[in-house]
Each structure stands twice: as structure tokens, then as C-alpha cells.
């Protein structure tokens, strides 16, 4: 009898342990999302109530935006060029090469420009934001800010999120412009598609709202990507190893979020601009 009870308890504790280990990642994920939401709310609160650090904002706009211009332009140019090459080889089969311009144009404006720009910004600015704030956290510089009655969310996070959000649509625009230019050069001069029909189809198909969709996406991605990078940096511990981990997590979480969020944003935008 006693043995049976003991056995049951033993099995139960095994069961409990199993359930705990199965549940742990889920509770961990929920906790993570919860703390990210609180971090976001705190950032919003400091944005409206805190001191406005104009100097930091401009410095970050230069670091995040201006210094990314060349790389964004380069990636935009080649994306447009390769997209023109591929679409042309497809459209050639049905003798519709003159549609290359409009196809590339729509794809660039609505999807390629905002998504690629966001991914480039994650890699370039997101990683550096996470590493910088992370290093400041582990070397007590964040504590030092607090000890001088300067709240780190107000001083470090708000300007970076604002800078990324302001610069993203501009960078999306640059990507878009260079992408269109690249597609034009490849189509007209390399593939010798007649310019007249190419441009005519382009003007007929493209609408201002195509660009507008891309810009909205750019703004949303800017907010989310910079918040993730700041959050990861702010919650760094364990010295140099921790900074490495935060940086990696900022880039991985940022890129995945951009790609997943893009689907839902597109669904919404397609309803908004039918």
C-alpha cells in the first residue's frame, strides 16, 4: 500500500518535472513579451514627459541614417538591377518585356524597399545600438546616468527610437529611387527594352499610394527595430559575453519581427488601399 503511494508520488513528481520543463520556454516567452511591452510603454511615457535631448537625437540621426545612406543606396541599386534582370527573363517568354518597369516599381515600392532597408538597418544600426547600450549597462554607465538623475530611457532610448523612426522613411525613399534607377539602366541599356512602352506602363500602373505603403512600413519597422535593439541592450548582463548575446538577439529578433510583421502590415495596407 505504502509502496503504491510512494510510486504514485514518484511518478507524479516526474510528471511535474516534465510539465515544468515543457512549460518553461512558454512562460519565459510570455515574460519576455510582457517586459518588452512595459519597456515600450515606459519609452512612450518618457517621450511625452521627459526632457528632449536634441543633441543626442541629431547625433543618432547621423549615425543611424546619414551614415547608412551609401550602403542603402548600393543595396537598392543592385536589388533593382537584379530584379529587372529576373523579371525580364520571365516576361520575355510571353513577349511582355515592357511590363518590367511597372512590375519592379510596384515590388520595390511596396515590399522590397521597406523590408530590405529595415533588414539593413537591423544589421547596421540595431546591432550597434544593442552593443552600445549593452556595454554601457555592464560597465555601470547606465547606473551612472541614473545616479546623476538622468533617466536612461529618456536619454538613451527615446532619441534612438525617434532617430530611427525619422530616418527610416527617408532611407526607404533612397532605396526605392536607386532601385528604380538600377532597373531602368538594366532594362533600357542592357536588355534593350524599348523605353517608350516601358515608361508608359510604369506611369499607368504606379500610383502614389504604392510609395505611401512603403513609407508607412518604413516608419513601423523603424519603431519596432530600434525598440528591440534598445530593449536587448538595456537588459544585458554577464559582461562581454552578455553584450555579444544581446547584439545577436537584437539582430535575430529584429529581422524575424520585420519579416513576420511585414505580412500582417501588408494585409492591413491592402485593405486600407484596395
Amino acid at each position: 500500500m505504502i509502496e503504491a503511494i510512494q510510486n504514485f508520488l514518484f511518478r507524479n513528481s516526474r510528471l511535474q518535472a516534465t510539465l515544468t520543463s515543457v512549460g518553461k520556454p512558454f512562460t519565459g516567452a510570455i515574460k519576455g513579451v510582457g517586459s518588452f511591452v512595459f519597456f515600450t510603454l515606459e519609452t512612450v511615457q518618457w517621450f511625452f514627459r521627459g526632457k528632449f535631448h536634441v543633441r543626442v537625437l541629431f547625433r543618432e540621426m547621423v549615425k543611424i541614417g546619414v551614415n547608412s545612406t551609401f550602403i542603402i543606396a548600393l543595396v537598392g541599386l543592385f536589388s533593382g538591377m537584379v530584379f529587372a534582370l529576373q523579371t525580364a527573363s520571365g516576361f520575355r517568354l510571353i513577349n511582355a518585356e515592357s511590363l518590367v518597369g511597372s512590375t519592379v516599381g510596384v515590388a520595390l515600392a511596396r515590399e522590397l524597399a521597406p523590408v530590405f532597408t529595415a533588414l539593413m538597418i537591423v544589421a547596421r544600426a540595431g546591432s550597434s545600438i544593442a552593443a552600445e547600450i549593452g556595454t554601457m549597462t555592464v560597465t555601470e554607465q547606465v547606473d551612472a546616468l541614473k545616479s546623476m538623475a538622468v533617466h536612461p530611457i529618456n536619454y538613451l532610448v527615446v532619441p534612438r527610437v525617434l532617430a530611427t523612426t525619422l530616418m527610416m522613411p527617408l532611407l526607404v525613399g533612397i532605396f526605392n529611387g536607386l532601385g528604380l534607377f538600377g532597373a531602368y539602366i538594366v532594362s533600357i541599356y542592357l536588355l534593350e527594352i524599348p523605353e517608350g512602352p516601358y515608361m508608359m506602363h510604369y506611369h499607368k500602373v504606379m500610383e502614389p499610394q504604392d510609395f505611401f505603403q512603403g513609407l508607412i512600413k518604413g516608419v513601423v519597422f523603424g519603431v519596432i527595430v530600434s525598440l528591440i535593439a534598445c530593449y536587448k541592450g538595456y537588459h544585458t548582463n554577464n559582461g562581454a559575453e552578455g553584450v555579444g548575446r544581446s547584439t545577436t538577439q537584437a539582430v535575430v529578433a529584429g529581422s524575424v519581427t520585420v519579416l513576420v510583421l511585414n505580412y500582417f502590415l501588408t494585409t492591413w495596407l491592402l485593405q486600407l488601399f484596395p
Binding site: M136, T139, E140, Q141, D143, A144, S147
Partner: peptide, 8 residues
Amino acid sequence: FQNAALFD
């Protein structure tokens, strides 16, 4: 602070 925590 222990290592001065100057802003680098």
C-alpha cells in the same frame, strides 16, 4: 563607481 563608469 568602482571603475568610475565614465561615459566612453
